[in-house]
Simulated scan of single mutants.
Amino acid sequence: MSAQNSQGIQTLLDAEREASKIVQKAREFRTKRVREARDEAKKEIDSYRQTKEEEFKKFESEHGAGNKAAEDDANKEAETRIKEIQDAGKKSQDQVVSDLLKAVFEIHPTPHIEV
């Protein structure tokens, strides 16, 4: 009976070792698969990023020229208006100075009336 118990224990130990090997292989397989999935996802992300960057560069080149032209037009218009304002200021500069001096030197005193 003791030999039978010993053989039964040995069979259980062998089964436990075999189960341990199967579990270890499953862990290794899972770890390997996780790494492969991560690498695959990284490649997909890089590919997607590259595609979107190319789309953005294309969009920027197509629409950037229009913005540059509009910006140049706006700058030209602003320069023209500034020049007009400066010219108007130069034309009436003498009159403005004269009016200011007249307002300062010609005093018209008026009595203060309380209401």
Rank of each mutant, 00 (worst) to 15 (best):
T11F: 04
D87V: 02
D94W: 05
I113L: 03
I45M: 14
Q10P: 00
V96G: 01
I45N: 15
V115G: 08
A103H: 05
V97K: 15
S61W: 06
S20F: 07
I82S: 15
I22H: 01
E106A: 03
L100A: 15
T31V: 08
A19W: 00
V97E: 15
D39F: 06
R33K: 14
E40P: 00
K32L: 04
S98H: 11
E62H: 08
D73K: 14
T31M: 07
S98A: 10
T31D: 14
E40D: 09
Q7K: 08
A103P: 00
G64Q: 09
I22M: 04
N67Y: 07
E62P: 02
I113W: 02
S61N: 10
V23W: 01
S61R: 11
E54D: 04
Q93E: 14
K58C: 02
E62Y: 03
L100E: 14
S20M: 05
Q7L: 09
A69M: 08
G66V: 03
Q10L: 11
T31W: 04
A37L: 12
L101I: 03
N75I: 08
L12D: 12
I22G: 02
T11H: 02
V96P: 02
F59I: 01
N75Y: 10
A65C: 10
R35E: 12
P111G: 10
H108Y: 01
R81M: 09
Q95K: 15
E53L: 04
M1T: 05
H108M: 01
K52A: 11
A70D: 04
D39V: 04
K32A: 07
T11Q: 04
H112T: 03
E77A: 14
A3V: 00
Q86C: 06
T80A: 13
Q95Y: 08
A69D: 08
K25R: 11
D73C: 01
A26S: 09
S6I: 06
L100W: 09
S20L: 11
A70S: 08
E79L: 12
A19G: 03
K43D: 06
P111A: 07
S98W: 06
R35L: 11
R35M: 09
T80W: 06
I82Q: 15
E106I: 05
H108W: 00
D72C: 05
Q50I: 03
L100F: 11
R33L: 12
K102L: 01
K43Q: 04
A37I: 06
V23Y: 05
E106W: 00
E54S: 06
S47D: 09
I9G: 08
S92P: 00
Q7W: 03
Y48E: 10
I85Q: 11
E44D: 10
R27M: 04
A3E: 12
V115T: 04
F56Q: 09
S6H: 07
K52L: 12
E54V: 02
I82M: 14
D72P: 00
K57P: 01
K68W: 00
F59D: 05
E18V: 01
V23D: 09
E36D: 13
D94M: 05
S47E: 13
K32V: 02
A70K: 12
R30W: 01
L13K: 11
E84A: 13
Q10S: 05
A41W: 08
